[in-house]
Computed example of a mutant assay.
Amino acid sequence: MRYVLLTLAALAALGLVGAGAVVGLGLYNVSARAGHWPGVPWVLHTTYNQSVRLRAPSEGEVPDLSAPGLAELGAGHFESACVFCHATPDTMQTATATGMKPRPPHVTDTMEHWEPRHLHWILQEGVKMSGMPQWPAARADEPWAVVAYLERVRAGTAPDVAPPTELPADAPEALAYCATCHNIDGRSDWPQVPRLDILDGDYMTSALSAYRDGIRGSGFMQHAATAVPEPALAELAAWFAAQDAAGPGLGGDAALVEAGEELARQGTGEIPACIVCHGPGAREDKPAMPDLAGQHATYLRTQLHLWRDDGRGGGTRANLMVKAAQDLADSDIDALAAWYASLPPGGN
C-alpha cells in the first residue's frame, strides 16, 4: 500500500511540474489559428452545457415571451449589440466573427439545444473565455426581451427592426440610433420603452449620464448611452423634450385607475404623495423628478418593481423612491401604473 501511495504522489508531482512548465514556459499555444489540443473542446463544451443547465432559472420564471413589443425591443438591442458576432437571420457572419475561437454561433443556430430559460442565463451571465459578455446591468428582467426575439427567430417570424432612414433636417446626428426604440418623436410603440416626449430635458440628460456612468442600471440604456458620443446626450434629450406631448391618456380598467389615483394622492409623514413630485397638476419645483402622466403602464410597473426591490439605482433620488415603494403590493403597483397611464400627458 505504501508503494501505491508513493507512486500516486510521484505522479501527482510530475503532473504539477508538467502543468507548471506548460503555463510558466508558454508551451501551450494560445493561437486561435492553432486551435485546442484533442479532447479540450469536448471538455470545455460539456462544462459549458452542464453549467448553464444547472444554473438556469426554472420554467416557472419564464415570462410571457409573446407580450406586445417584447421581441421587437429585443430585436432592437440585438441589432446594436449582438449582430457583429452573430449576424442576422438574413445575413452571414463576417470572416472576423468566424475567426474567433470558439466561433460564435450564427443567430439562427444560437437556440440549438437551448430552452428559453437557458438562453436567458447565457445572456444575463455571459460565458468566460468565449467572447460572450455578461448583461451590462444586474437586471434579470431585460434579457427576456432578447430571448423573445431569439424565439421568434427560431419560429421563422423574426421582427424586422431598423433605424429610420429619413430624419428631420434639424435632427441631432445620433437620433436615428435612438429612434430605433423611441421613434423620432419619442413616443415608442413598445410598452416596455418609456415615452420621452413627456419628460424634461434636464431630467433626461441626467438619466443618460447616470446610465453612461453605470449609476443607473439598464443593459439596454447603458449600452446605448455608451454607444453615442457623450456630447450628443444633451442634444438628444433636448430634441425629445421639445416634442409635442399633447394627446389623450392610454385608458385602462376603471376600477384599477380609481384605486391608483387614491394611492397616488396619499402620503405619510416621511414619504410625500406621488403627485407632489410626479404630478399631475401644480407641483413643487422638482426638476429631477419625471412627469408620469401618459407614461406607458408596462414601463411604470417595471420601474416600481425595481424601486421596491432596490434594483434600479439612479443617484440622489434612489433612497426616497426605494422607501416610497418598499411597502407597495403588486396590486398597488398595477393600480398606480394604470392611473398615471390613463392621464393625458402635459398636464403637470
Results as ranks from 00 to 15, higher is better:
residue 48 Y to E: 11
residue 48 Y to D: 08
residue 49 N to P: 01
residue 50 Q to N: 14
residue 50 Q to L: 15
residue 51 S to Y: 15
residue 53 R to D: 12
residue 53 R to E: 11
residue 53 R to M: 11
residue 56 A to N: 12
residue 56 A to G: 08
residue 57 P to N: 07
residue 57 P to H: 06
residue 58 S to I: 01
residue 58 S to T: 13
residue 59 E to Q: 11
residue 62 V to H: 12
residue 62 V to T: 08
residue 62 V to F: 10
residue 62 V to A: 10
residue 63 P to H: 04
residue 64 D to F: 09
residue 65 L to P: 12
residue 65 L to Y: 12
residue 66 S to D: 14
residue 70 L to T: 10
residue 72 E to F: 09
residue 74 G to T: 06
residue 75 A to R: 05
residue 77 H to P: 06
residue 78 F to E: 01
residue 78 F to Y: 13
residue 79 E to T: 06
residue 80 S to R: 15
residue 80 S to T: 06
residue 81 A to L: 04
residue 82 C to N: 01
residue 83 V to I: 10
residue 85 C to I: 07
residue 86 H to F: 06
residue 86 H to Q: 09
residue 86 H to D: 03
residue 86 H to T: 07
residue 87 A to K: 03
residue 88 T to P: 01
residue 91 T to G: 01
residue 92 M to T: 13
residue 92 M to F: 11
residue 92 M to V: 14
residue 92 M to P: 09
residue 94 T to C: 08
residue 94 T to P: 09
residue 95 A to R: 15
residue 95 A to T: 14
residue 96 T to D: 13
residue 97 A to S: 13
residue 98 T to M: 14
residue 98 T to F: 08
residue 99 G to R: 13
residue 100 M to Q: 13
residue 101 K to V: 09
residue 102 P to L: 01
residue 102 P to V: 00
residue 102 P to T: 02
residue 104 P to Q: 05
residue 105 P to G: 03
residue 105 P to F: 04
residue 105 P to E: 06
residue 108 T to V: 12
residue 108 T to K: 15
residue 110 T to W: 01
residue 110 T to M: 15
residue 110 T to R: 09
residue 110 T to E: 00
residue 110 T to G: 00
residue 110 T to H: 01
residue 111 M to S: 08
residue 112 E to A: 13
residue 112 E to Y: 15
residue 112 E to P: 02
residue 113 H to P: 05
residue 113 H to Y: 11
residue 114 W to A: 14
residue 115 E to Y: 13
residue 115 E to T: 13
residue 116 P to A: 04
residue 116 P to D: 06
residue 117 R to Q: 15
residue 117 R to L: 09
residue 117 R to I: 05
residue 120 H to E: 02
residue 121 W to Y: 13
residue 121 W to H: 11
residue 122 I to D: 00
residue 122 I to V: 15
residue 124 Q to S: 07
residue 124 Q to A: 07
residue 124 Q to E: 07
residue 125 E to P: 03
residue 125 E to V: 05
residue 125 E to H: 12
residue 126 G to S: 02
residue 126 G to N: 04
residue 126 G to R: 02
residue 127 V to P: 00
residue 128 K to P: 08
residue 128 K to N: 10
residue 129 M to P: 00
residue 129 M to F: 15
residue 131 G to L: 11
residue 131 G to S: 05
residue 133 P to I: 04
residue 136 P to A: 03
residue 136 P to L: 05
residue 137 A to E: 02
residue 137 A to D: 00
residue 138 A to M: 05
residue 138 A to G: 02
residue 138 A to S: 07
residue 138 A to K: 14
residue 139 R to Q: 10
residue 139 R to V: 04
residue 140 A to D: 14
residue 141 D to M: 03
residue 142 E to L: 02
residue 144 W to M: 09
residue 146 V to C: 06
residue 147 V to A: 00
residue 148 A to K: 08
residue 148 A to L: 06
residue 149 Y to M: 01
residue 150 L to E: 04
residue 151 E to K: 15
residue 152 R to Y: 00
residue 153 V to C: 03
residue 153 V to E: 05
residue 154 R to L: 08
residue 155 A to E: 14
residue 156 G to N: 01
residue 156 G to H: 01
residue 157 T to N: 14
residue 157 T to V: 10
residue 158 A to P: 10
residue 158 A to W: 09
residue 159 P to L: 07
residue 159 P to C: 02
residue 160 D to G: 04
residue 161 V to C: 04
residue 162 A to Y: 08
residue 162 A to I: 03
residue 163 P to M: 03
residue 163 P to E: 02
residue 164 P to I: 02
residue 165 T to C: 00
residue 165 T to L: 11
residue 167 L to C: 06
residue 167 L to K: 05
residue 169 A to V: 05
residue 170 D to S: 08
